[in-house]
Amino acid sequence: MPSLKDLRNRINAVKQTRKITSAMKLVAASKLRRAQEHAVAARPYGERLAAMLANLARAVKDTPEGPKLLVGTGREDVHLLVVATADRGLCGSFNSSIVRGARRRIRELQEQGRTVKLVCIGRKGRDMLRREYGDLIVEYVDGIAGKRRIEYADAAAVAERLVRRFEAGEFDVCSIVFNRFKSVLVQQTTERQLIPVPAAEGTEESGDGRAIYEFEPDERTILEDLLPRNLAVQIYSALLENAAGEQGARMTAMDNATRNAGEMIDKLTLYYNRTRQAMITKELMEIISGAEAL
């Protein structure tokens, strides 16, 4: 049986832990709100760009040779997977679910006989994938996921390097794995194709995209400028969703941890009081029986 002192120490330790987890929860909650605001503020640009891209894509569809970023290389041999995770842990299953999704995808692609290459954004993802697929990682992007505010320039830099790799013929298809932010409680691991650009869904086109545009200077030149930007925006939005998801997941995880700590404290306190009473009773019995023996 642990002594009273040991129990007291344990109760105090758990109380300290609860303080930390509840503080982390509050911090995550405020960061979550900010991250959500960023994600919402960034949405219009992505939408407009996608609409413009759809218009342009339609305009060049009939020409035989579209830009490679749009139509792809015509092969699917080498698949580059961008795995975007957080830099920090203590956020429930947030990172591990992304990594699990990535692993499944890697295996799937390898079974189809494709070569897989990995680009990791965020430390956690790299750490977890390094053991198994260390030799597949061609690039590790540091210092973005942990930022207080993810900037577009960061995503643009990643996109630029991807384009350079693509132009050097290092891969044929590229997609990004990240957690889509559905709500504070739910993040869904999603894979989004980046290169070649997936065909826009037919439903959107029919509405307002009907206008016949004039293009200045011409469709191709605009596309060549627009495609890398589109890539950057896609990455940017994935990173923003990830950032919001990370904070959401952390908030939930810390909330659970705080509650668990509370339960544990209750249990330990009960046990502590019982033990204390038992000791008192025992001491009393000793005194009484001692007195009676006289």
Binding site: A41, A42, P44, Y45, G46, R48, E151, Y152, A155, Y236
Partner: peptide, 9 residues
Amino acid sequence: FELVSPERV
């Protein structure tokens, strides 16, 4: 008229 940057409107 709208001026939109990647970060916000």
